[in-house]
């Protein structure tokens, strides 16, 4: 095990984390502002990936695909918000879960209908296809570094958006008190649509970027959605900062766990047993992390401690 290998895995972990962050940020915003739990967020991720794969194949340009993913996911988000979500804001979480679960069925099967069951593939664009040397003598793909960069940029952008723009002020006001925001004379339904569209676009972006390293297929969104939930539980609901730190924790823990645990078990077991035990435990690592956070901080690392009113 060389230093460069460890560094490479670490970068992979960060890249994975950054991608989960793009999902978790939208989810946590939507929950924080509208009090809505949206299971169909994974579908928006999938829509982004399919749109980008289809448009990239048609135009031959990855970047057109990327733009299409943002547009398609945001459009789907706006549509879903207007048709379904609006009726759910005042409902209890059970109704929200069920309605958005129904949306998953519709989106997933609808996509299968249009694109078929076979996965699509999206190529990494020429300009980003190389690798750069990293300390310790290894090489690391430029494309993955780009994902990390984009994720960090989105994080900074969101921070700026929430703390330094009018929209951000409204979002923060909406998180605290829906009536207050009404009193401020803000058009609440426009605000909700805007927040939903931003969240959807971020999910679509994540889907498109990941589409170039994994295959694009129906059902790709839900595992990431559940990871984003884990992130939100760890970071605290409604907190972008919590989502960011939680995402990196989850990404790095998962990647390093899969990499290091089998190595670790090799010290005690025969190779086959070590691989089996190591990978089985590693598959649970992030959930164990979540359980530990829950034991010590039931409302997450950055979640507001609930105060009885």
């Amino acid at each position: 095990m060389t230093a460069s290998l460890i560094l490479e895995q670490l970068l992979n972990g960060v890249q994975f984390g950054v991608m989960i962050f793009l999902m978790a940020a939208g989810l946590t915003l939507v929950f924080g502002v509208m009090g809505l739990i949206n299971l169909a967020h994974g579908s928006l991720y999938m829509i982004g990936a399919f749109a980008s794969a289809a448009v990239a194949a048609f135009t031959g340009s990855f970047f057109w695909g990327l733009a299409a993913s943002l547009a398609a996911a945001a459009a789907a988000g706006v549509l879903v918000e207007a048709l379904v979500m609006r009726r759910l804001y005042d409902r209890d979480h059970l109704d929200q879960v069920l309605a958005t679960f129904a949306l998953i069925l519709i989106f997933s099967e609808g996509t299968r209908w249009v694109f078929g069951s076979f996965p699509l593939y999206l190529d990494i664009p020429e300009v980003l296809s190389g690798a750069v040397p990293i300390p310790g003598g290894g090489q690391y793909p430029v494309y993955r570094l780009c994902i990390i960069f984009v994720g960090l940029a989105v994080g900074v952008l969101l921070y700026w958006l929430i703390h330094h723009t009018r929209l951000g002020i409204r979002i923060r006001a909406g998180e605290n008190d829906r009536e207050m925001i009404d009193a401020l004379g803000v058009n609440i339904s426009k605000l909700y649509t805007a927040v939903f569209a931003i969240g959807a676009a971020l999910a679509g972006l994540a889907g498109a970027m990941v589409g170039a390293i994994q295959s694009v297929q129906v059902g790709m969104g839900e595992p990431v959605l559940i990871l984003a939930f884990v992130v939100i539980v760890i970071g605290g609901i409604g907190s972008i900062r919590g989502a960011f730190i939680g995402s990196l924790l989850v990404g790095v823990t998962d990647t390093m766990g899969r990499f290091l645990l089998p190595e670790f078990f090799r010290l005690f077991f025969d190779p086959a047993g070590a691989t089996a035990a190591g990978s089985a435990i590693a598959s649970m690592a992030i959930y164990l992390l979540m359980a530990v956070v829950l034991i010590f901080r039931p409302s997450g690392l950055f979640g507001a401690r609930r105060v009885e009113s």
Partner: peptide, 30 residues
């Protein structure tokens, strides 16, 4: 563990533990 929280946290956590069991079953070869 899950009942230390409530509401939407509870939904997410139970979902997450479900996924944990799923991945464990997939990666446990015995």
């Amino acid at each position: 563990l899950s009942l230390r929280t409530s509401g939407v946290y509870f939904i997410m956590i139970t979902l997450a533990f479900g996924q944990m069991a799923y991945y464990f079953a997939i990666s446990w070869p015995a």
